[in-house]
Design a protein around this nucleic acid. Structure first.
Lengths: 391, 391
DNA sequence: TTAGTTAGTAAAGATTACTAACCAACTCGG
DNA sequence: CCGAGTTGGTTAGTAATCTTTACTAACTAA
């Protein structure tokens, strides 16, 4: 039944894993790290279900009541958690003291630098409720002036903060590395601008800078209820995407994940693109061109055809991605009037017909409900995650 | 300079993140967990650079010599680590006692159930060096008989194990969930077969069952030196892929990540597929059809054209995936004579011309060097990772 | 009134990793 | 040859963290 071969030492192909190049600095774990982790668990539990008692937390997190009490005492001392009073319902035993995160006691700053007519920013409380808004016009502003405009926006917002600021989140266009350095953002003429460091030092506040589409994906995941395997596609002057895989944002080997605007779609040509190729996804879907095509349409039928073709192209490009990653959800963000109707439907239909639904299960394709705030809200969530461990 | 709006409570779209559905059971961290983590760090450091002293480990891992000594004492007591003797070189100070993982003192079992003529298995030491091989013929065997064949293969291999067995890794075709249950594997007529649990209970050994392409991706990552953002494509009777993103294997929302064989590629038709669609990736690249097309070719030029077209199709399908994930590496596994020449080159060229190289940086496209052992080695690595924390 | 239940706290114990201090064993320079 | 300097490893004591055990407080139910 079995084939027995002579024992062999296969020192050839199969030798010990040599991944010295990828020698990641996986950090050691000290007691304080464990404590931080548990503390974040408590905050997270409180965050998404306010009105928990210490005993509830103990059950949910899996630590003992004693330890939870200790952690909660720390959090109350830092004013991050408050006691709400006794639980009203009536049941046996000592009534519980309800706790909640001090949701309105702190402020988070979120910025969106991706619009090329104005930088926009908000202040929110810990819930992501927008408390203040501001913007600075930046049409044609680049380089150091664009940095200065960012500072002006922050100066304005921070001056209006009524509660202590936990941190600053910034969604920037272009390629941004893990340190928050903008590697390249041609529209702003930024190349290797260490924006995160600049802001953090200027304001002495924890700061998170990341790509705008990635921020948007985080926003959609947290406030839009998106699932753990999701792609968010931003359509505007260009086309960018943010991917969440297994609950984690994808960065890519060169921090360029989601940059699919200049991937050629289909095998039948297409319009010439500024990048030199023809038939790039952007040539089909970037809103200026799409708007032009729509407005040139003779009637509603022709208009619908334009949108349907764009949607089909999007579906063709997304097919392999959806299949390879087995995404559960694809979310579009951009001009509602262009995307929400025929285009979305055509994309959905194309995806259905070009991927294996039986295997891949149900895919949800929808518009975001967060509107223009999607990037700033993503920035806010990123701060929340980075500072409090809430994700 | 800034536009000030009236303060507003935006309780509408932007309310508190409601992700109760995704309430993951992020586990609390107890001291023992931290210890396990640090212990894994020690093992990992020793694994990839044998001949480290306790002091070396302390420097590399970031713990103190005292703690390292303590951890190492545990590991030596378990026979996982051995002292090699004094470091030979001559320098000031007390000579170091070199340590190493007890590489040949344990055995790992790796199985590959993806071939439909025979189940194949190996025993390896901790280095992944193959020590024994076995296989059972399974042509046409399905259902319980296929499970029995797996047992027979394991019985044979385990009887030959000269050193204690750390665990069993199994690469199975089809959809496999995180518990190692084969959700569906039509070729074996397996539906919801809890293979991992069955094997673990029968042999009382830690067992890991996962999809074959995913196992192959793990193997390539560990033993093939693949990078942290990589896609491994297995071409055989069908076509499947395993994806590693940010160093982590992608599972997908329905455990179907990598199932791209039936994604339609291109916009110009294609051959009919067994799945009902036309132009699926498998119709271009599955080896039976590819071999037939090649053998029907009149001359070498025609043969090259067939392979080049298949390669181009692969490139067209991969373009959006490579772009969206910003992959650093794509690795092919399958019949070397078909894939390694014209096909590979055509794929590379297609990817180059259809994605934005300037943004996406360098992409490596290559064949695996692990040959037919790629799945079993991946299974071995998975055990190594699961049991010792080495990854 | 009594029994049972639930919330929260207090004290003591077990793990874990740290600091400080030590010994062991080597090289090197005079 | 011998002391100073260097490096590896261990011992002893301490700080941080979570647990177990045991308690009090405050309620319901009969």
């Amino acid at each position: 039944m079995t084939t027995r071969e002579t024992q062999q030492k296969a020192g050839t192909a199969a030798s010990r894993p040599v991944r010295a190049a990828t020698a990641r600095p996986t950090s050691r774990l000290r007691p304080e790290h464990a404590r931080r982790h548990n503390r974040a668990l408590v905050l997270q539990s409180l965050y998404r279900a306010q009105g928990l008692s210490r005993a509830d937390l103990a059950r949910e997190v899996g630590l003992t009541r004693v330890t939870i009490s200790d952690l909660v005492a720390d959090l109350i001392a830092e004013d991050l958690v408050v006691e709400l009073g006794l639980r009203p319902d009536s049941r046996p035993g000592k009534p519980a003291t309800l706790l909640d995160i001090n949701r309105t006691g702190f402020t988070i700053v979120g910025l969106d630098l991706s619009n090329n007519s104005a930088f926009r920013g908000v202040l929110t409380d810990l819930d992501g409720t927008v408390v203040e808004r501001a913007e600075v016009p930046v049409r044609g502003v680049t380089g150091d002036e664009a940095v200065a405009a960012t500072y002006a926006l922050l100066d304005d917002l921070l001056a209006r903060a009524a509660a202590p600021v936990i941190g600053i989140g910034v969604g920037s266009p272009g390629l941004v590395d893990l340190d928050g350095t903008v590697v390249q953002a041609p529209n702003l003429d930024w190349y290797d601008v260490p924006l995160q460091q600049l802001i953090a030092e200027r304001y002495d506040l924890p700061t998170q800078v990341a790509n705008d589409a990635n921020m948007a994906a985080q926003g959609e995941r947290a406030f839009g209820g998106a699932s753990a395997d999701m792609m968010l596609i931003r359509i505007g002057r260009g086309l960018g995407a943010g991917l969440v895989v297994g609950g984690h944002l994808v960065h890519g080997s060169g921090f360029a994940a989601g940059e699919i605007g200049h991937v050629v779609v289909g095998t039948d040509g297409g319009a010439d693109c500024a990048c030199g190729k023809a038939g790039c996804l952007e040539t089909w879907l970037a809103s200026p061109r799409l708007e032009a095509n729509v407005s040139q349409s003779a009637d509603a039928t022709a208009k619908a055809a334009v949108l349907a073709e764009a949607g089909e192209r999007l579906g063709i490009a997304l097919g392999p991605v959806v299949g390879a990653l087995n995404l559960g959800e694809v979310v579009l963000a951009g001009p509602h009037d262009l995307l929400a109707g025929d285009l979305l439907e055509a994309t959905a239909e194309t995806l259905r017909s070009r991927t294996m639904g039986e295997i891949h299960g149900s895919l949800t394709l929808r518009m975001t409900a967060l509107g223009r705030d999607i990037v700033v809200l993503g920035a806010v969530v990123t701060v929340l995650t980075g500072q409090l461990g809430i994700s």
